[in-house]
């Protein structure tokens, strides 16, 4: 792939990079403190872990409101609309083509930041898993007010375990996500792009219409 001629395109805006990295720090801290609260290990002490987990969880909630707001204002949410086109090719690429040095079947462009697999994954994450964690986390946090809020039917054990399952899912996502960043044309290419905003893509590739984000009218 390195023999291809590369060009740089500006893919990730300042706010996008800001929320990505803040969110990553928050998620890692939430995972560490969350599993400590769950009793998986001892690091900061239970009270500190709870305190930090609560504070960061609420901080994230505020950040998430801004992220969602940004997505709709900039129409970037359309980058997350799922598609099955070339999904199979992408899966085949990661399971075989990548070892043979074949080019990625879908190229990144300003209007198509995510390949079909990423679209599905990030949509699942942003629209399902993260809100699920936020709702269960917020309810967990408000445990003492359930009766006052008319939520007395909730069960702490069920809620805590749902929140835990969500935590495991995010941890697994994180592992695969971090690994996938190494699959660019160099090991650190994708990570560097997430810092600078500029992604290197092969020059001659054109982006098919279906992949383009619909333009604003």
């Amino acid at each position: 792939m390195s023999e291809h001629k590369m060009k740089k395109i500006y893919l990730y805006s300042k706010f996008e990079r800001f929320w990505h990295w803040v969110q990553s720090v928050l998620i890692i801290l939430l995972l560490v403190t969350g599993f400590e609260v769950h009793g998986s290990f001892e690091l900061l002490g239970f009270m500190k872990a709870v305190d930090i987990h609560n504070t960061i969880g609420l901080t994230w909630l505020i950040l998430f409101v801004f992220i969602v707001f940004w997505m709709f204002v900039t129409h970037e949410y359309k980058q997350y609309i799922p598609t099955t086109k070339k999904l199979f090719e992408v899966a085949m690429y990661y399971s075989s083509g990548i070892f043979k040095g074949e080019p990625h079947p879908v190229q990144k462009s300003k209007n198509a930041k995510h390949n079909p697999m990423q679209r599905l994954t990030y949509l699942g994450l942003t629209a399902v898993l993260l809100p699920f964690q936020m709702v269960t986390g917020l309810l967990y946090w408000a445990y003492n007010d359930w009766a006052d809020w008319g939520l007395g039917f909730l069960d702490l054990e069920v809620l805590a375990l749902l929140h835990l399952i969500g935590g495991f899912a995010i941890l697994i996502f994180l592992i695969v996500h971090v690994y996938m960043t190494t699959t660019g044309h160099t090991i650190t290419a994708h990570i560097a792009a997430m810092f600078s905003g500029w992604e290197e893509v092969p020059e001659e590739e054109t982006v098919p219409d279906w992949e383009r984000k619909a333009e604003r009218h």
Partner: peptide, 17 residues
């Protein structure tokens, strides 16, 4: 640029702490 963003991210995390 990379350094600046890293610094900003860390600062944001610190502010939250």
């Amino acid at each position: 640029r990379k350094g600046r963003w890293l610094a900003m991210t860390l600062a944001a995390a610190l502010l939250m702490a």
